[in-house]
Amino acid sequence: MAIPGAATAGGAITGPPPPRYWVRHRVALTGWGLLAPALIVLLIMSVVPTIYLVMFAFQHVDLLGPGTKFVGIQNFERVLGDPEMWSDAGATALYVALAVSIQLVFGMALALMLNRKMRETNLLTALFILPLGVAPVVSALIFRELLNPVYGWVDFYLQSWGLMGDPVDWLANPLTAWISIITLDVWQWTPFVALILLAGLQGVPQEPREAAVVDGAGPLSLFWHVTLPLMRPFIAIALVLRAIEAFKTFAGVYVLTGGGPGTSTTLLTLDMYRIALQDFDVGAASALGICFLFALSFVMSRLLAVLAKSTDILED
């Protein structure tokens, strides 16, 4: 698949790396020139907000009154001194871990099933990816309605099929509320993971499998010892992309549980929204945002390490 010679043979855009200084210079200009438009767009959306966040985090910012003033690290003290922020950070990490690992398992199972040649495989693949296109606001509203214990379909059918006794108020109990928000994310994103893994399965060379079958490997050991190692790059990509997106989850949980019951499903993004856009306490929101970004960049570096170890997509 990847062409080993391409990068080295290519070197610069016109043949092997040119030795002369001014040519190197020109190559760099071409490279940065090609990157520049994209970098400008990304700078606007990442560096500019970061500058604002750093500026505001040390101020009491009262957008609605004249009270803006420098307050040192008071905003950080407030955010980090609030025990709820720590439990919400824990909830966010748990949410990402649960949602992504379940999606990887389900996605792999689905990809394996769809990889078998059948008459209707194409149709099935097409239908399976439908949840991907539903806006999170809409899917959360639908879930909320379906899960309602008195007029929702979930409890009704579970009861009428004898799978459940009393109706369950899914969103009123921390455990079942968690099941609900994880199910929502799993429902929405498993197709995406399955697609990536399916792309991997279709690209995996057949020779090692055939060799293993000749050696008498059973289906399970075939999957475990041959397919899974070959799939590692794709698993890594799915893991990284989903983990990042899961950290950013907002609309689905906000609409489905609003952070409740109590504060049990309050993710950090919900806190950000509340402090920033309902209280308009921009200083505290900026401090929290910076802490969140710090934590995320640590996670991101770990995820990039995973990518570097399992794939060559970070390499030149």
């Binding site: 990068a7 490279g31 995320l296 030149d316």
Partner: peptide, 23 residues
């Protein structure tokens, strides 16, 4: 194109994906 800072630019571009819209 092989130029100085290419790798760093590539990694930085990928890392901007982590910026949560809520922030």
């Amino acid at each position: 194109v092989r130029f100085r800072g290419r790798r760093a630019a590539a990694t930085w571009i990928l890392s901007t994906i982590m910026f949560p819209p809520a922030v």
